[in-house]
Design a protein around this nucleic acid. Structure first.
Lengths: 137, 137
DNA sequence: ATAAGTGCAAAACATTTGCAGGCTT
DNA sequence: AAGCCTGCAAATGTTTTGCACTTAT
């Protein structure tokens, strides 16, 4: 989804296209490292010095409502934002907290087996694997 | 794990067996609904009127360190505690937040396939499925 | 022109921390 | 008797909320 897609998407939904929204949205959609709200705030402050954390939170919740991103709560209280809405595994380093996504054909197949066992289509899912990453070992 | 097992477990680790610890521990280990710290506090206050939230948190973290329970952070900021340390899926109602555990052969299969793809044994995992439960429909 | 969105500051929450006193060992 | 554990209260950190102002439509 590039900037124009985002603009059209907002327009279709009757939402206003503000520079803050665009910035937050293109930022989070392009990142693969699942940043926190605070990280997004700090990075966007360079370009938008008056942007506020409140706006960051409101926009992130909006994007979740619209189904563009997923909020991932972790037990140390941190909440991180993931723009990958397809089936994938979050590989979480239990030391430094770094996250990367992992996809595999096997996962797709076995997941659909589990879904058909259930007998209904779930609204969503989350799969985490906790391990110690190379940097931490 | 019954009360005596818990007592022995603590003794072996050199930890003191206090009535609060016992109460919190037997409470959480017996519950299948993944309560929050606040819920545990409210329920135990009946029997232990002076128990404090601080103690609840400290004990829950201790139990996690010891590998007896798992902390599950959710996006609405809630953290819930799960005494089931075996492989399972958390079935989470996205409306009311109720959680129940789901186990199936296919889940085991999925997991062993993933582990062999990865090539190493992860420290832990978490699998959630989000859906709308019968009460909420 | 109007209504939605932003920024700011205060409020609300959840969790952690420090310390004096109490309880297990 | 010694030191770990508890309860309380204050501190911390994150997220939400209310409101006046701004901006996209």
């Amino acid at each position: 989804m590039d900037t124009n897609d985002v603009i059209n998407f907002f327009r279709e939904k009757g939402l206003k296209v503000t520079s803050q929204r665009l910035a937050i949205c293109t930022f989070i959609l392009s990142r693969k490292d699942h940043p926190t709200a605070e990280q997004i705030y700090q990075e966007l402050r360079n370009e938008y010095p008056t942007i506020s954390l409140g706006t960051i939170y409101k926009t992130l919740h909006l994007l979740q409502e619209l189904g563009l991103i997923q909020e991932l709560g972790f037990n140390e209280g941190s909440v991180r934002y993931d723009p990958d809405m397809e089936l994938h595994i979050n590989m979480v380093c239990s030391k430094c907290g770094k996250i990367s996504d992992y996809k595999a054909e096997n996962v797709e197949k076995l997941w659909s087996a589990i879904i058909s066992d259930l007998g209904f289509k779930p609204k969503g899912q989350r799969i985490d694997i906790y391990f110690e990453c190379n940097d931490c070992k």
